[in-house]
Design a protein around this nucleic acid. Structure first.
Lengths: 135, 135, 135, 135
DNA sequence: GTGGTCTAGACCACA
DNA sequence: GTGGTCTAGACCACG
């Protein structure tokens, strides 16, 4: 699990960190209960200000991805579905539309796109058919 | 083709405009040769600062989505593939990865995701089977 | 609409601000579309660091209470229900249990408590019977 | 009476313990004179640092919920009203206001809220109609 | 040791 | 002008 940042990327550093952690969880590289590096430790490693890491960790906690405990550290949280189904789908569709629009403008063909999706989707750890119950 | 902006959306207005135009092109609502409203006209219509529209038009031209002809206005450009195939795929994969990561964290199931994709993909006008390569 | 902070209160300043704004909205003192003071302006007024105000505004935005727009300010957002019904009730019950436990330890009687609740509840602007549709 | 802590809960462990004991007393699961486990014993049982339990016990004693007798342990104290009536009501109202504000923002309706309150209030052991005043 | 809050002050992006 | 990001460094609360 090596988290990395790209300072040339216009995306804010803390956002990059948030995405990196979420990605790690989504592909199973990190699992509930795993401990993230401490704020100071990761800040040193990534050569950024501790506040930047702290902010990322806080955003992750707000999103429900992690749980922080004063005195002991930051941990990957159990997954919980808190949003309404319509809201979850709305958010996904928004991103999907943007992605497909970009794909067209990149000049990809539909088979290209379908191929890439099929190839990528297997790397992610989705829930069962429809998580209507809570864990 | 009515372009609409949502001022409550945190996405910058000029970027919303860029996305809206690209989306319109991607779904076939606008086609190469179509003329965009003038900056002033569109600014009035959308109730935004003309600078905002101008900035969006500039970004669209930089991306190769539109072409402006001095004196006659801004038009949707013919589609041209400017990036190398590996770069195009790399960019698409980046967005795709982020989308799928989000989907997992939203608690969507793989069938949910596949269903949404299948439903959405038909609305977009992709190129033929394999976009012709170029230097 | 006068937002005030109590520096002797152990509750973090930015949290106090968040609560104050939410309260103002909940009792109808502020309504969707209303503009909050700018970060710098409010910071000056409350004699705190602008970052503290910014953090509160950001938390409010994350909660969906406000919408910030770079260049124009921070506004009360339209209300939207994004959480699942079970999650909303779960969160409310948690706070309710703590409140009633405190009430017992404060030595209040059940009629006292019921009286206070009846008196207070009228000041808040609740939604209709069950907001299952979105605005 | 099994006290339980949730280490993933952002609320400090010692405070969770305080709340748990107060809750137990408030719903009648523990009564004046009941003996609490020893610090070491409870620490072992809850798998937390003895300091954490000791701190919680100290806070409970400060609040007047428990009384420790040297050598014999910690016991639930007789209930005593120590605050003036206006102060007790002030504190309750503060929490009540916050709760109702949250309820509005959660999108609960007034009937929802009243229903939850009626359902919950019966579980608590309030004092008689009017707690006797004192100096 | 851990995370959380706050201040001070710089610089950038948007309208 | 607006909000957003980042750095630097202090101090507090928890375990």
């Amino acid at each position: 699990m090596a988290l990395r940042l790209d300072p040339t990327n216009p995306e804010p550093l803390f956002q990059q960190l948030v995405s990196a952690v979420k990605h790690a969880v989504a592909v199973g590289a990190m699992a509930p209960g795993d401990r993230l590096p401490s704020v100071r430790e990761l800040a040193r490693e990534l050569v950024v200000n501790p506040n930047t890491v702290a902010r990322a960790y806080q955003a992750l906690e707000t999103e429900g991805v992690t749980r922080s405990r004063r005195g002991s550290g930051t941990f990957i949280a159990d997954r919980r579905v808190t949003l309404r189904d319509d809201e979850r789908r709305r958010r996904f569709r928004e991103g999907l539309d943007a992605l497909l629009s970009d794909a067209v403008h990149l000049g990809l063909s539909e088979p290209d796109v379908r191929g890439e999706i099929d190839e990528a989707i297997g790397r992610f750890r989705f829930d069962g058919p429809t998580a209507e119950d809570e864990g």
